[in-house]
Amino acid sequence: MDTTIAIRPVRLKPRLPALLEGWGPALVFLAPALVMLCLFKLWLIAEAVYTSTGTFDPGGQRIGNAGLDNFGFALSDSRFQWGLWLSLFAAVAKVPVQLALGLAAALMLRANTGGNAVVRAMVISPMFFGLPVTTFIFAYMFDANVGAVNAILSGIGLPRVAWLSTEAPAQMLVLGLSIWRDVGVTMLVFLAGLSAIPPQIANAAKLDGAGPFALFFTITLPLLARSFQFAVVLATLASFQILVPVLMLTKGGPTGATDLASFQIYETAFSYFDLGTASAMSLALLFGLIVIIALELRWLAVKWTYE
């Protein structure tokens, strides 16, 4: 395979002039994307900001202005603070595990053989089953009484686990489901990154007598920096989207163990119809997410190119 997008050599040769200068005709091409961008991203944020300043009755009707009170209320609520910590914890727990597994799978399956292609397809297949359906399946597998997992545990002499009503197992289950589903994406990112490493570099290192571990840590890993950056951002984003399993499996419990901020937002909006507070919570979480991603991008900044 030829070069990839993540690792792009910077072109130093002089550029040919653009096909077109100015906004006019560009607008024709940009229009579909621009309209949707304005409607469903920019207006969306504006709507969130506006809603967050309102007081709403339990039927979802705006009945007054709250100024910044909703933010004050949400951020001073111990449950929401816990939810934010938990969301951060989910990111911190999910990202490294998923990256390690994805990288291991990519290294193992990088050679283009028929067998590898089949295994690769299997690793990414959970993406294609959709989260709702896979969550049903997990609910059944991990059921305390009829689930196959507990049958296996008791079969090999281990105690049964009440997966959904014990704190640590519930967290492991929700996170595990998310990682299991997303490892394929990370693997794809690393596969693309690996295929972009010029073989000469590895060959040269081998000639210098580098062993497989030295080769990996001194050559492969540094050259995967851009893929790392991209995979980290994607995994972080995905860690903020672990709502469906929580909603369908644990409802935030037991005793708040999976009470992620995103679940609280959903409950506040659609069980209590406290839309002002829910929007304030949305914006706070969004801000947190952007700060985390900005920090990650800073730490993982890549400053080299191949040329």
């Binding site: 009440a162 009503s165 014990t166 704190e167 409802k251 419990g253 037991p254 005793t255």
Partner: peptide, 8 residues
């Protein structure tokens, strides 16, 4: 109820 059942 769920929290109580889980042993809190």
């Amino acid at each position: 109820e769920a929290d109580i059942v889980s042993g809190g």
